[in-house]
Simulated scan of single mutants.
Amino acid sequence: MSAFTTPAGLTGAAAGLLLGVGLALVLWRLSARRIRLVDRVAPYLQERPTTSRLLQDTHVITPFPTLERIVRPVVRDVAGLLERLGSGASSIRTRLVRAGSPTTLEAFRTEQVIWATIGLAGGLLLALLIGVTRGVSLVPLVVLVALCAVGGALLRDQALTRQVQQRERRMIAEFPTIAELLALAVGAGESPLAALERVARSTRGELSAEIGTTLADMRSGVPLAQALDRMASRTALPSLARFTDGVATAVERGTPLAEVLRAQAQDVREAGHRALMEEGGRREVLMLVPVVFLMLPVTILFAVFPGLTVLAITL
């Protein structure tokens, strides 16, 4: 019998095989961890970029790319300050969408910095004028200049808010006509999608542009209900949200749409009439200010002055 066929021989052979495999693994790991000369020299021979990091950023939004890259860090710092003052990035993005503006957040921040610079220049001129004419101390003048700069940036934010309000007022004014046209097209036998396309082609305005954007979303593969939901989220108007819900429900369930559109148009007209009456009431109150404080004193003076003159002559 051979020595390798006995149990003791088999055990010894297995142990030797395991020992050899273990030594081979140890030697392989040691050779893998060895740092070669090429690895040591390679970091010192790599090509480093010679262009400044300010010039590597190719995304520019103004006609002056070099100046924009230089000023961009300052714009970011000012943007952080405006965030703390209440001009949040999410709010600005939402209002830019509602205003239908193609301006990006970075471009809007740049405009805010420009407005703040104009306010700073105006504050400096005003501070110099007050300091020369009135002799005011330095601290109030510095506070005035800072307030003018911050006021310029916040004034651009308020201008965006007014832009959103004006656009939404135009959309509300256009909505009854658009709804009536859609009701006529649907009543004539067209599908809601064909009616929307006809109205988008034959009308002009803010609401027609929103309908055109919705149709573009649907042509790109977005379902009609989802495209109408996007339209409602872009406008954030309750009447348009009801309109999009009605159109989506009519398309999904096959319910009559013409009467719903006419009812919505009538509701918007009544809401506009109520808003007009409320605005007229406020204007009427404001018209009393010049009547009471300007015209009435002059009228009393003309009525009383002749009598006072007669009394002065007789005395």
Rank of each mutant, 00 (worst) to 15 (best):
I118M: 13
G119D: 07
L120D: 02
A121R: 06
A121F: 09
G122P: 00
G123K: 02
L124M: 14
L124G: 10
L125D: 02
L126T: 10
A127T: 04
L128S: 08
L129Y: 11
L129G: 15
I130T: 13
I130S: 03
V132S: 11
V132I: 13
V132L: 14
T133G: 02
G135C: 07
V136R: 04
V136L: 12
S137W: 00
S137D: 15
L138H: 01
L141C: 14
V143T: 09
V143I: 15
L144N: 05
V145I: 15
L147Y: 01
L147I: 07
C148D: 05
A149K: 00
G151Y: 01
G151H: 04
G151V: 09
G152C: 07
A153F: 02
A153M: 07
A153H: 04
L154C: 09
L154R: 12
L155R: 10
R156A: 15
R156L: 08
D157M: 05
Q158H: 11
A159T: 08
A159F: 04
A159H: 07
L160K: 05
L160I: 06
T161P: 00
R162K: 13
V164Y: 01
V164S: 10
Q165C: 04
Q165D: 14
Q165N: 11
Q165T: 14
R167S: 10
R167Y: 09
R170H: 09
R170F: 01
I172W: 03
I172H: 08
A173R: 14
E174C: 06
F175W: 11
P176I: 07
T177P: 00
T177G: 12
L181R: 09
L181F: 04
L181E: 01
L182A: 06
L182M: 14
A185G: 08
V186D: 10
G187P: 05
A188K: 02
G189F: 06
G189C: 11
A195H: 05
L196Q: 02
R198P: 01
R198C: 00
R198G: 06
R198W: 00
A200K: 06
R201E: 15
S202I: 06
T203L: 00
E206A: 15
E206F: 04
E206Q: 11
L207K: 09
A209P: 02
A209Y: 00
I211W: 05
I211Y: 03
T213Q: 12
T213F: 04
L215F: 04
D217F: 03
D217W: 05
M218F: 07
M218H: 12
G221N: 07
G221S: 02
V222T: 15
A225E: 14
A225W: 01
A227Y: 03
A227V: 09
A227D: 05
L228P: 12
D229A: 10
D229H: 06
R230Y: 06
R230A: 15
M231V: 08
M231C: 14
M231P: 08
A232W: 08
A232H: 09
A232G: 12
A232R: 11
S233T: 10
S233G: 00
R234W: 04
T235C: 14
T235F: 00
T235H: 00
